[in-house]
Design a binder for these strands. Sequence first.
DNA 1: CTTAGGATCGCCT
DNA 2: GGCGATCCTAAGC
Length: 190
Amino acid sequence: MNQFACIAGIDFSADAAEVARRLIGVTLLVDGVGGRIVEAEAYDSSEPAAHSYGGRTERNFSMFGPPGRSYVYRSHGLHWCLNFAVREPDHGAGVLIRALEPTHGLEQMRARRGLQDERLLCAGPGRLAQALGVTRAHNNLALDAAPFTLLPATEAVAVVAGPRIGISKAVELPWRFGLAGSPFLSRPFR
DNA sequence: CTTAGGATCGCCT
DNA sequence: GGCGATCCTAAGC
């Protein structure tokens, strides 16, 4: 295992699905604001739902960089979404961070989201990025340095898996992972 | 509770 | 010109 790709006890050079599963329970902060990851999805250049499926472009180049860096893209013209690049350079794999259980900087997240309800602050990739202040400026940055902080899970977690959300291709792959029973998911598992 | 439509940018055919 | 790894609101049942 490449120890330089190891962050918060996770080997980012592993398969996207394995990294996504192991990220559940890890704390993610951006400038000290964030919480515990409760939902993540894996994407890989070998399957057509991934942005990297068609090869490197201006938009997705950070998916093809070294593991342990961020990939931020704009969705539907108005939302930002945060991913972690995994595997090795030129492969094109990543993990979409879909939901957090808010733990740090609640008031700042409420202000950015214009909402009080804790359950809706980070329940979805666009909401999460807005609450943490993630924009294009956060693309292609190392995850083990400021403004990012990743902290290992402090206890064992029960992880469930299911089909990914909001895609039309490769819908059969069970590459969505979540913390069992969490009220902070973007949508429940069934 | 479920569904439908609009907002709005950048990549792709 | 079409369509997305989305979110919010409004209306219908």
